[in-house]
Design a protein around this nucleic acid. Sequence first.
DNA 1: CACTTGACCTGTCCGC
DNA 2: TGCGGACAGGTCAAGT
Length: 286
Amino acid sequence: MPELPEVETIKRGLQKKIIGQVISEIEIISPKSFQADPSLVVNQKVTDVIRRAKVLGIQLDNGYTLVFHLKMSGQVILEQKVEKFIGGHPTKDMLGILPNSSTRVIFTFSDNSKLYFNDQRKFGWIKLVKSAELRVQSFGMRNPIGPEPLEKDFNWNVLRDNLIKRKNLPIKVALLDQTVVAGVGNIYASEACFNAKVDPRKKVKDLTEDEIKRVTWGIVKALSDGIEFGGSTRTHFVNAEGEKGLFLDYAAVYNREGKKCKSCQGLIIKIRLAGRSTFLCKNCQS
DNA sequence: CACTTGACCTGTCCGC
DNA sequence: TGCGGACAGGTCAAGT
């Protein structure tokens, strides 16, 4: 699921509720989803919640950080109080009752509230990394992570330099490379190219300086808007309270194949780049 | 080294 | 209604 705005939305939701709480119990339903020693987690107090790229981190007071990667279908949801359903036989998934069939790990806090890690496709993971080693360990990722696009020091020079090794790739595909820029995924890569009025198929080496500047701004705008709308929900994403994100109602091109461009009334088309669905306005991105 | 493709999983939707 | 295939917010390894 989640790209930078979705993970950031979850992070902010968790910060309000779990800082200072002590993890009293962990129930591991799917061992593949929890690649850590539970004894280093139980009885530890949460000191902060962080995000780097698409990785969420829950910092503990013993010097370790629980890092979560949600991949395509992961969710991190705090226990919700659900009203009793009157009549009928709704499923747990319909009601949002947790745990459900996608629940892989359950954390219980000392006040008896719970945090659920759900992940239908089981691509996601939770690992434990020493907080002091987060950077060297790339927050649990295999490869080094590129610059945070919403930090002050991100600018078009940084993007241009990082794109050099991807000169033969279409720009939209290059933006998915986490070593180039952190946190951009398939939705926001299409949106960033639209914002920049750049054809996502255009190879990096053919981009002008002005186009790279526009792409830089386009990334920042897409991600900032995403956060403002509480993230994108295509199917799975929910925030820490279990609520969907609204960005896709606002999005210019993603999932709008056959519709009119909100800016020029041109046709939005869907293509495939590197095996991923890609959306663009035929008229204003040429 | 740069780039492409498939694998990892489960569920849903669409066409026949 | 059943069944096969395509597809879904992401990496990662193996292949060319």
